[in-house]
Amino acid sequence: MGDAAKKLPRIEINPKLCKGCSICVDFCPTNVLEMRGTCVAVKDLAACTRCQLCDLRCPDFAIQVFD
C-alpha cells in the first residue's frame, strides 16, 4: 500500500472546456478540488483517491485523473 500512496495522481483540467459548474468540487469525497474564479483547480492533490467521480460527473469533458 505504501508505494501506491506515495505516487501522486495527475489531474488534468482543461480550462478551455471547464464551465465552472463546480459539480466536481462538490462531489469530490476528499476535498481535492476548489473553484478559482470560473475554473476548477487542484487544492490538495495528496488527498486524491483516484476515485474518478470528478471525471464521471463533469458534464464538460474538462477534468480527468491519471494514475
Binding site: K19, G20, S22, D55, C58, P59, D60, F61, F66
Partner: peptide, 26 residues
C-alpha cells in the same frame, strides 16, 4: 486510465452548447 472520450467525439466540436452544470453532458 480514465476513459478516452476522444475515441468517440468529433474533433473540434467542444465545448458543447449546454449550460454550466447541465446534466446532458454527463
Amino acid at each position: 486510465v480514465p476513459f478516452d472520450y476522444n475515441k468517440y467525439l468529433r474533433p473540434g466540436k467542444l465545448p458543447h452548447i449546454w449550460c454550466p452544470g447541465c446534466g446532458h453532458g454527463i
